[in-house]
């Protein structure tokens, strides 16, 4: 019997991981620093902005103790720009992810390997016009939790749906030119999109691998055979030199 669990993460799990993203809040009440496992939170003093993990921000928002500042890329203008990039500038590829906030140099640094959700890609200081790794789930969560903090929630909602449609169509289209090696690049694809497309893409690749398997075996045998020939002739030459 097959294991009933699907490989990969379900949308709910991806959304759970997304709650570790840092967002910027504007507190309405004072709150002392909390000693959490991931480190102490900054002490909240209204009206100073502070960065908080999304789950804590949602909790405070629900209790009306804070307002969430939406990240700049979730602004309708920024989404318009991204949508335009996706449909007109580059109808084949995905819009690029935000640039790495820590300068990448030739010398390896400990900040090089930091990845979402530990990058500040959804705070108020994040760059506009780039979709971060958790864009879809973060957008949906914010739309659900704090539509009053967003500039134009209905427009943002339709824009997010449009973006999702366009990008999923691209992911599906890409499987047409799949080879046995796999998808060429997933740069700029978000966590939720990977979760949605995983079953299909893995299935297609599996099928191609099976169909190409005996061709692969034949090629390897031929190479081995030719390699053996080469080895023998090399030995022969050595013998001659001696």
């Amino acid at each position: 019997m097959a294991l009933p669990l699907q490989p990969g993460l379900t949308p709910t799990e991806v959304a759970f991981l997304c709650e570790m993203e840092t967002v910027t809040v504007v507190p309405r009440q004072r709150l002392e620093s909390l000693p959490l496992i991931s480190g102490p939170t900054p002490a909240l003093r209204p009206p100073h902005r502070s960065p908080l993990p999304l789950w804590l921000a949602l909790l405070l928002k629900r209790q009306r103790r804070a307002n969430i500042l939406p990240p700049p890329w979730l602004h309708p203008q920024s989404l318009d720009k991204i949508l335009k990039y996706e449909t007109e500038t580059s109808p084949e590829g995905f819009s690029p992810p935000p640039p790495h906030p820590y300068l990448l140099t030739t010398r390896p640094a400990s900040t090089d390997t930091i990845s979402p959700p530990f990058l500040p890609s959804s705070t108020a200081g994040a760059p506009a016009g780039y979709l971060p790794y958790h864009w879809l789930e973060l957008g949906e969560i914010l739309l659900e939790a704090c539509p009053d903090d967003l500039p134009d929630p209905n427009r943002i909602r339709t824009q997010l749906r449009d973006l999702r449609e366009v990008r999923m169509a691209k992911i599906r289209h890409r499987t047409k030119d799949l080879e046995g090696g796999g998808i060429t690049s997933l740069r700029g694809v978000g966590a939720m999109e990977v979760s949605e497309g995983r079953g299909f893409i893995v299935g297609v690749m599996d099928g191609i691998r099976k169909l190409g398997s005996n061709r692969e075996v034949a090629r390897r045998e031929r190479e081995e055979y030719e390699g053996g020939e080469g080895g023998i002739s090399d030995e022969g030459e050595e013998m001659e030199y001696e």
Binding site: R172, H173, T175, K176, D177, L178, F200, G203, V204, G207, I208, L211, G212
Partner: peptide, 11 residues
């Protein structure tokens, strides 16, 4: 041919 068929039909 089979691989191309699989790919086209998968889409």
């Amino acid at each position: 041919v089979l691989m191309e068929t699989w790919r086209r039909r998968a889409a």
